[in-house]
């Protein structure tokens, strides 16, 4: 018999608690309200256990780096390719028709990325002296969440980056993005893309399933219907301070409801009754 915190525990429980200590010590992503991808922060991702019967929540660095690279090489790689996200439709074949850099991870290293909300900016053209629209835009950040849910899951791919300069191994990941729904077309109007948000059954399948390439692509392209999302505008301080404050912008046109009401999505895999 062993003791933990003055209480009697079995040897196996003692070992489990000691392992937990190590994991908790490494969890410095806790209590962070906003993760800005371009700072390559540590975030919470879920990976399947070896027997694929359960999952564990671990921390990983947002910004996918494949295989072995030195520090400078990894920085250059991320600058060139911006591997914060992957496109669901390009998991196996890239836009130029070549084999995609994501294909092996899509088959072997799928994970789920935990989030309580995403921030995307709406770009509104600035006006010139004569009232004409300029190329320059003002960015209005929106916080988008899932109605009635404190958190949601997005499909991710991970890679253990071996830093050839230091020998350090860092788990890195990217988030799946898909075609924007009608709400996100208005919010993220510069790219017309949105993160893929998965219902529980597809999140489980993405993580645990023995899937064909077609099925992997199908899940990764899932579009959440606009009616399930809620959004509000927030202050620009989220970017530097990491704090979210709701903020109204009187000059910003309201989100148009008509297109949302008549929305038809190509990849809506969400249960209809929700």
């Amino acid at each position: 018999m062993c003791y933990y915190n003055g209480q009697k525990v079995t040897r196996s429980e003692f070992i489990q608690l000691k392992q937990l200590e190590k994991a908790v010590r490494n969890y410095d992503f806790l209590n962070v309200e906003v993760h800005n991808g371009f700072n390559y922060p540590l975030c919470a991702i879920a990976v399947a256990t070896d027997d694929k019967r359960d999952f564990e929540l671990i921390q990983a660095q947002w910004g996918y780096v494949p295989g072995k690279m030195g520090t400078d090489e990894a920085i250059a790689f991320r600058r060139k390719l911006t591997t914060l996200n992957f496109k669901g439709e390009n998991l196996f074949v890239s836009e130029s028709g070549k084999p995609s850099m994501w294909r092996n991870a899509a088959r072997e290293n799928r994970c789920l990325v935990f989030s309580t909300g995403i921030i995307e900016s709406q770009h509104i053209p600035k006006l010139g002296k004569k009232g004409q629209e300029l190329k320059a835009t003002t960015k209005y950040p929106h916080l988008v969440g899932l109605k009635g849910h404190e958190y949601f899951w997005m499909p991710g791919l991970y890679s253990d980056w071996v830093n050839q300069d230091t020998g350090e191994v860092t788990r890195t990941f990217a988030i799946g993005i898909t075609q924007a729904n009608e709400l996100m077309k208005q919010v993220h109007n510069s790219k017309l893309r949105m993160p893929c948000i998965l219902p529980d059954n597809l999140a489980w399948e993405w993580l645990m399933g023995d899937l064909t390439d077609d099925r992997i692509t199908e899940i990764a392209m899932t579009q959440i219907p606009s009616r399930m999302l809620e959004e509000c505008t927030i202050g620009a301080e989220y970017r530097l301070d990491g704090i979210i404050n709701k903020q109204q912008y009187d000059e910003l046109p309201r989100i148009k409801q008509e297109s949302i009401d008549s929305e038809i999505l190509d990849f809506d895999h969400w249960p209809k009754e929700i």
């Binding site: 429980e13 908790v24 010590r25 209590n31």
Partner: peptide
């Protein structure tokens, strides 16, 4: 900040404990 979990003692008796030890 305090991190806690439910540990299992002898005879499957559950109790709250801090991770790491020291804040029982």
């Amino acid at each position: 900040p305090l991190t806690i979990t439910v540990a299992i003692g002898p005879n499957n008796k559950k109790f709250w404990t801090s991770i790491p030890e020291g804040r029982q």
